[in-house]
């Protein structure tokens, strides 16, 4: 479930990256974050499938819920990281302009 949620996040991020008008929102950051994690969880899933067989696809409801909760938390954390990188790099200069405006008004 975590892998599935992360893959969906990666696909949406990639679509957004493809549709971008410019790089000012740094759409490549969530792409690499979510694809990197998805590929790594794929490796984990391969080993789990080799161990459990078909049982891998029929998880207990409680496990699925916990994994879904983890997946959503991972997506939230990835998006927070993207926002932090975006605000620090500030490609549009919005943060800088806002800070200068505040400094000038004092």
């Amino acid at each position: 479930m975590t892998l599935l949620i992360c893959v969906f996040a990666a696909i949406i991020a990639t679509i957004k990256w493809y549709q971008r008008k410019d790089d000012s929102m740094m759409p490549g950051v969530p792409c690499v974050l979510f694809w990197g994690a998805s590929l790594m969880w794929l490796g984990d899933a391969i080993f789990e499938y080799a161990e459990l067989g078909a049982e891998y696809f029929t998880p207990a409801a409680e496990d699925m819920l916990n994994d879904a909760f983890l997946g959503l938390s991972v997506v939230a954390l990835g998006l927070i990281l993207w926002l932090v990188i975006l605000l620090i790099k500030d490609p549009k200069g919005v943060v800088k302009a806002s800070l200068r405006k505040k400094a000038a008004s004092k």
């Binding site: 974050l33 979510f34 983890l70």
Partner: peptide, 17 residues
Amino acid sequence: AQLLWGGAFLLCFEHIW
């Protein structure tokens, strides 16, 4: 490097979880 850092960061969170 970005793929690896991104993946490692989010997997680290999973391990904390």
